[in-house]
């Protein structure tokens, strides 16, 4: 297994764990954490695409730049989501979304 393979499997696992968590957990904070873990998996794979095992040219800077903007956007959007969840909690005492019609 190559270095690329090790991290690629890691990215796949992060995406899977995150998707499962986001779909199965009810607590909103956990769901937001799960979304961030999905983001981490996606970022990992993107950076990996620019990784060069060897060679004179260093790692590809383009995916790195994209992921850098991604990290900053992810933190701002997830803190916005957390504020919404906290307002819901303060208004209704809920920590979960209501689920009418789903059961």
């Amino acid at each position: 297994m190559t270095t690329f393979g090790i991290y690629a499997v890691g990215a796949a696992l992060l995406l899977t764990i995150g998707i499962r968590g986001a779909l199965r957990r009810k607590h909103l904070l956990r769901r937001i954490l799960a979304l961030n873990i999905i983001g981490g998996g996606a970022f990992l794979f993107l950076v990996l695409l620019g990784y060069r095992e060897s060679g004179e040219a260093g790692p590809d800077p383009v995916p790195q730049a994209l992921v850098l903007t991604g990290i900053v956007v992810a933190v701002s959007i997830s803190s916005f989501a957390i504020v919404i969840a906290r307002r819901l909690n303060a208004r209704t005492g809920r920590t979960e979304l209501p689920e009418e019609g789903l059961d």
Partner: peptide, 30 residues
Amino acid sequence: SWAATAAVGVIFAGVFLTVSEGRGDLPQRV
């Protein structure tokens, strides 16, 4: 749900592993 999770994981890992390391010439162009 576990079967679905495993399927998702296998698909992601399979797709990621078929992509080989980037070979484009972007670094050189940058």
